[in-house]
Design a binder for these strands. Sequence first.
DNA 1: TAATTACGCAACTAAATAGTTGCGTTTAAT
DNA 2: ATTAAACGCAACTATTTAGTTGCGTAATTA
Lengths: 104, 104
Amino acid sequence: MQHDPAQIFAALGDPNRLMLVVKLSDGQSRSIMRLTSDFSMSRQAVTKHLRILEQAGIVRSTRVGRESQFIYVPEPINDLRSYLDTVCEQWDDALLQLKSFVER
Amino acid sequence: MQHDPAQIFAALGDPNRLMLVVKLSDGQSRSIMRLTSDFSMSRQAVTKHLRILEQAGIVRSTRVGRESQFIYVPEPINDLRSYLDTVCEQWDDALLQLKSFVER
DNA sequence: TAATTACGCAACTAAATAGTTGCGTTTAAT
DNA sequence: ATTAAACGCAACTATTTAGTTGCGTAATTA
């Protein structure tokens, strides 16, 4: 099943979550504690954000010993890029039509 | 001033707003009534969504006679694409490094 | 084995969001 | 001059969201 664009946009629509994604998009997996240390909020708040990202498919978590490792999953954001491309293409088409209309 | 990525993501993070953007991204300007007719919600609800999109810079409105015309503004979403590109590039770099590490 | 670390679960609060309805104003049509 | 259309503003409700705190449990460490 494809990912819901609106859900992904919404997941990225919070500054803190966006920072989490940017951090994790370097491909390294990190524990919740590790991620929390970069922010000025509680571990539980970070956990909630991570679960929302996981729900959207942007990250994946695995329990390793006593800690939960989170890792970036590239597909949803790649899909999002394609989605934005279609929006932009529609715009480009409109521009072209306008141009050819003006020029004739 | 550049646009705030998180704000744009958030603006696109609602299904109804996303549909409004897709409609408007063909470059044609439309009135609130015209846009409302495509949805199953009140005019006021649509208006609120449009104002949120306007706040994020994705659309622009002009009063023409007794109606408000909304038109798509491409820059913010173009910026968003670039933003996503940087995230994806970071991921690609990580992949490359991993590959070269495994191969040696 | 005892202490500590990392985490999950649940309850709770405050604020933001999505939506509605009602009313007044300006513009256009009859 | 009336009437109707399109909209803005404000109040209100219900739901979701972002965040906190407290407590219990499994895994490490000493």
